[in-house]
């Protein structure tokens, strides 16, 4: 603990305050407790319909593809069609998400489904999004058995099912939902915000898709 005390001591000395500086403590505790929102851009502050439309437009701008379907029942077919359209084998990796599990996968007889975390050999993985942000076309995904984080990164193609009701205007709304679901100050092991497929501009500043993560991000938006 010597490093700890030395560093904190130096910080306090430089700041010119004592460790029991009551006013600072109050300010810090208040901020941690209230987590005030700052400037929220107008861009995403829209009614439900316009918000979903904006999400689709923003996601497509960052090279994601979006398919809208009426209900969860339509998802397996949409997944199969996506795989066919990309000449991919009829195989997917999924976690234990109940919403995904309830879908009529049996209608897609040719489709083989592996469960659990990805081992790196999957061409396509399917996740269910925790939420989405219209302002930037961003998906939010949480880790766990339902939607293992490896599925977000290892497959060449990442297919994300999104309930249109979960499209928020801004990141702050998604964060509030994380707090509601996991508890104040508690988090899933990993919260991924994903905005388009993986890319790199490291060679001559030329932007290329598919660096280390998925080459393609396909969003199936349900309802709305």
């Amino acid at each position: 603990m010597s490093g700890r005390e030395a560093i904190l001591g130096k910080v306090r000395k430089s700041l010119g305050g004592g460790p029991n500086d009551a006013a600072r403590m109050v300010a810090v505790e208040a901020r941690l407790a209230k987590a005030p929102k700052g400037v929220i851009p107008e861009r995403g502050q829209l009614d439900e319909k316009a918000r979903r439309k904006l999400f689709v437009a923003m996601a497509e701008r960052v090279s994601a593809t979006v398919r809208q379907v009426k209900s969860y029942d339509d998802v397996p077919k949409a997944v199969a069609e996506y795989l066919r359209s990309r000449n991919l084998p009829a195989a997917i990796r999924v976690g234990a998400d109940k919403r995904l599990a309830k879908m009529p996968w049996a209608t897609q007889k040719a489709l083989s489904i592996k469960h659990g975390a990805s081992d790196g050999d999957d061409e396509a993985g399917v996740s269910h999004a925790f939420g989405a942000i219209a302002e930037s076309g961003t998906l939010a995904l949480t880790s766990g058995g339902d939607n293992p984080t490896t599925i977000n990164f290892l497959p060449e193609h990442h297919i994300v099912v999104l309930d249109a009701k979960d499209v928020a205007g801004d990141m702050e709304t998604v964060l509030a939902k994380v707090r509601r679901q996991f508890g104040k100050g508690e988090m899933p092991r990993t919260l991924n915000f994903i905005t388009g497929p993986s890319r790199s501009g490291d060679i001559e500043q030329k932007l290329l898709l598919g660096a280390h993560g998925p080459r393609a991000l396909h969003i199936i938006m349900v309802g709305g």
Binding site: R189, N192, F193
Partner: peptide, 16 residues
């Protein structure tokens, strides 16, 4: 593209 918030090690029910 990726903004990742990580908190602690894997949880009991985490497969990865």
């Amino acid at each position: 593209v990726y903004t990742t918030v990580s908190t602690g090690p894997r949880r009991l029910d985490d497969p990865d």
